[in-house]
Simulated assay, not measured.
Amino acid sequence: MCKVIAIVNQKGGVAKTTTTVNLGIGLVREGKKVLLIDADSQGSLSSSLGVAEPDELDVTLSTIMCKMINDEDYGKREGIIVHEEGVSFLPCNIELSGLEVTLVNTMRREYILKEYITSVRNLYDYILIDCNSSLGMVTMNALTAADSVIIPIEAAYLSIKGLQQLITTLGRTKKYLNPNLGIEGIVFTKMVGRTNYAKEIKSMVEEIYGKNVRVFGAVIPHSVRAAETSAEGVSIFKHDPRGKVAAAYKKLAKEVLADE
């Protein structure tokens, strides 16, 4: 059975896209069929997977969602690109910004993406949605479509403050839109583990949330090599296969798989 996971945090710069790409390819490396959905109008995931000019693509997530809204036919594999490392992805570009406005006046506006995912989920073992850094209509679509969420956070005060707001939003989404929505876990990213400050923040999160929400054992360390992968259009597994970041994402993939 396919599992749909949204990678979400309304705070920017916490490695949502990096986590989506490397977790997705990490799952592929474990023998799973994976679809990544770029749900950020900046097209960061698409760029990270080698699409040089996302704004020039003919078919993107926006195209598919518009067809859903207008009850037009679409192919199950329409717009999907297969990356050299075996992961499939549905790209995105700036057109998604305009879709936010369209969705406001659409019937069942929070369920458009869910309807699409329902039509393709039998083709995959995992579908990961890279959400943008806001809680707008497209992100609400992602949360309504997801079985669970992974929350990447940095070990920093503002990240902790935003975490409480996000968990409140997830609770409301579960109550009003998606009663099956769960929290897969919190994953620390860009971690500078040697500092006392980072350790204190991590301990605080574990103390406050750890009883009800899993804090993944995998911790993604801060690394220049990880930042370089976006320019290369490949995962950390190909760019720096023996590095500490690759080892951390491999561990994260295995933790996600342990829930099967």
Rank of each mutant, 00 (worst) to 15 (best):
S133T: 14
G136W: 02
V138Q: 02
T139E: 01
T139P: 04
M140P: 07
N141P: 01
A142N: 05
T144P: 06
T144H: 06
A145I: 05
A145Q: 07
A146Y: 06
A146P: 06
D147G: 06
D147M: 09
D147A: 09
D147P: 03
D147K: 10
V149H: 00
I150P: 05
I150R: 07
I151H: 02
P152G: 04
E154D: 13
E154P: 00
A155Q: 05
A156E: 15
Y157T: 15
L158R: 09
S159R: 03
S159K: 03
S159I: 04
K161A: 10
G162Y: 04
Q164R: 15
Q164Y: 15
Q165T: 13
Q165F: 10
L166R: 00
L166A: 05
L166C: 06
I167R: 00
I167H: 00
I167N: 04
T169E: 08
G171A: 05
T173C: 08
K175M: 12
Y176I: 05
Y176F: 13
L177E: 02
N178E: 00
N180L: 11
N180A: 12
N180C: 10
L181G: 01
G182D: 14
I183E: 00
E184V: 06
E184D: 10
I186R: 00
I186P: 00
V187T: 03
T189K: 02
T189L: 07
K190E: 08
K190Y: 11
K190S: 09
M191W: 11
M191R: 11
M191Q: 13
V192R: 15
N196M: 12
Y197L: 15
Y197G: 08
A198C: 13
A198P: 09
A198E: 10
K199W: 01
S203M: 14
S203H: 14
M204I: 11
M204Q: 14
V205D: 02
Y209S: 05
G210D: 07
K211L: 10
K211E: 14
N212I: 12
N212R: 13
V213R: 02
V213T: 14
R214N: 12
R214C: 05
F216M: 07
G217P: 08
A218T: 04
V219S: 12
P221C: 03
P221H: 05
A227D: 13
A227G: 10
E228I: 08
E228W: 11
E228Q: 15
E228H: 13
T229F: 10
T229H: 08
T229R: 11
S230M: 12
E232M: 15
E232V: 14
V234T: 10
V234Y: 11
V234H: 09
S235H: 03
I236Q: 06
I236V: 12
D240K: 06
P241K: 05
G243R: 02
V245C: 07
A246N: 00
A246Q: 03
